[in-house]
Design a protein around this nucleic acid. Structure first.
Lengths: 334, 334
DNA sequence: AATTATTACGAAAACGTTTTAGCTCGCATT
DNA sequence: AATGCGAGCTAAAACGTTTTCGTAATAATT
């Protein structure tokens, strides 16, 4: 590439050693006032920037955070978290790199890739947490922060699914609903937490939900949610409100409801989860639980960098980020 | 971090020099059959992976592609391209890094950040192409590939907006529409190309579009498209079909149409652009032009890596990726 | 038998930093 | 006058590679 200024040239220009120059940039105290100034000016005029590779090699700190996820970039929930994570990381001087398994045709483990790139720490989210390769990474000693999953000895950020679900159910209850069906996602931690919230709310509000009202579909899967909706509509005692695993799945369900001649919210109520942009633009506006993706992402970055920069003193922490109910127009009063 | 195997340990274990070990991994021919085997086995057993920083320092090749974009990760168009770009890059042995302006609190130019990270090349997309900092990067000599914009001396990938638009308009024409309104996005290259396609189709099909049928809104902006729709509905001679800048903007328009008591496609027709997942899930299914984001992303990666790896022989190329019409249910026959 | 070509390998420098340990100088303290 | 001390600086090693150039041993050619 084009001739990039190095520490050496600055040293020569200022008539000092490279050590001194380096110290100036790294905030050492044993360098004279005017020398420091001269160095800084020379650096400025030469357009100097430290070479990241050299620095990484020497310090084994790459100022680089790895991100591990499995192909769901297209989901707004993830991409928003990623964006916010990235922003915060940048603010603190870190870049991010995606970690995957095949690099240059060769298959390697996540851990190997991470080591190869010299990531200082890893964000793990939206993956199959039971994958042994993921566990290997999590247990490697590299600083880790995970989202919506707790690993043994590292920090994590959890979207408050329990409370979110409780609030949602409570809202439905207050609007008179007792026959509330819940179409849930796959068997992830998130799902279990939402189920817990669901049941807890039912119990404290003292009403029962028949087993048939709980049906499994998947996340971000309109086809599955459509099928689940059909199943619910065939019941003798139909629910008055259906909860979907996420906003996008709601669309699939909605299609099915309309096909059955039911209007939302006149004939049946519904709610989503996530609070995506879409959910607030469509009409009727969806009642849903907005997850605070911005806070989740930036908190994750903060926790991770804290763990990286204080390897011995830092103690893992579980941060719960609460969401809030977005009242839409898809839940009618009964 | 944990003791990672180096080339030295392998050398010691095999009783050869580090030079030889290095050669084995880099496919040099001047190393004996069995020595090579021994080295490979030792590497395997030690769990060796080359240190990316050291390699980058020595070769000034980081196997790292920079990506420059402006905060629209949440848009499906971009995130799909990014995902596909990333996949192809990985396949060819490259990781990707986001390039931004503030790294560690200090503001730097895109070019500086790129140099600092030692990116071998840059993908530029979804940015303000008139930004001088972007031009500086594009003109720096670093290999560049851009999407939906042509820079002077680098390759680019262009979604075929001209043809896409032409096909769409032709389809509408064939279904009997003559009063076709076009709500367009901001003044980007993409928009101009779509306008060109629009006008070209009108001309070759020999029908005129009054100026009032062309109104500017924005991309991914349901509010603006709603306003534009309202404007169109107030015309004395209403269009029979409205084209939206993208699928998401269509939602905003749709709300407005329904508020006016118009049903799509019974009372008025509409079409989008992009072919997002959503557009094919909602009912009525949206008629739209699917952009081949997968091809765009992977082609961009291929072009970029080609330029990086053949600095002298490679000649810039403009690749046009064609999309295709997705026939939905929002355009009625007249 | 002498020369040349080929094969397999190694020594060492280099990439751009960081960091330790030590040096020099002037000044204050005994 | 001798000692100690802090301030400001440097030499040099090190990080883990790649790559050039050289050399020794063997094989092939005269």
């Amino acid at each position: 590439m084009f001739p990039i200024a190095t520490i050496k040239q600055i040293a020569k220009q200022c008539g000092v050693s490279t050590a001194t120059v380096s110290k100036v940039f790294n905030g050492y105290s044993d360098v004279g006032e005017q020398t420091a100034r001269a160095v800084r000016e020379a650096a400025e005029s030469l357009g100097y920037f430290p070479n990241a590779a050299a620095r990484a090699l020497k310090t084994s700190r790459a100022y680089n955070l790895g991100v591990l996820y499995i192909d769901q970039m297209q989901h707004e929930f993830f991409s928003q978290i990623l964006e916010s994570f990235k922003r915060q990381a940048e603010r603190q001087g870190y870049d991010i790199t995606f970690i995957s398994r095949n690099i240059g045709g060769r298959l390697m483990s996540y851990l190997d890739h991470c080591r190869y790139r010299g990531c200082d720490g890893m964000l793990i989210t939206c993956v199959d947490f039971t994958d042994p390769l993921v566990s290997a990474l999590a247990g490697s000693g590299i600083p880790i922060v995970s989202i919506d999953h707790v690993f043994g000895n590292s920090s994590s950020v959890l979207s408050d699914n329990v409370t979110g679900m409780q609030e949602l159910v409570t809202h439905l209850y207050e609007r008179g609903h007792r026959k509330i069906a819940y179409i849930r996602g796959e068997n992830y931690d998130v799902t279990h937490r939402r189920m817990a919230g669901f049941h807890r709310a039912c119990r404290s509000l003292k009403f029962n939900v028949p087993a048939m009202y709980l049906v499994q579909a998947g996340y971000q899967n309109p086809e599955k949610s459509a099928a689940a909706t059909r199943q619910l509509l065939e019941l003798d005692d139909r629910p008055t409100c259906i909860l979907y695993p996420d906003d996008f799945s709601y669309i699939g369900g909605l299609n099915e409801l309309e096909r059955a001649g039911l209007r939302v919210p006149l004939d049946i109520s519904a709610a989503g989860y996530d609070g995506t942009h879409l959910s607030q633009v469509m009409r009727p506006r969806l009642t849903t639980v907005k997850q605070d993706t911005a806070a989740i992402g930036s908190t994750a970055a903060e926790l991770l960098i804290r763990a990286i920069e204080n390897p011995e003193t830092d103690v893992p922490e579980q941060v719960i980020v609460s969401g809030h109910l977005l009242l839409g127009e898809t839940v009618s009063a009964i």
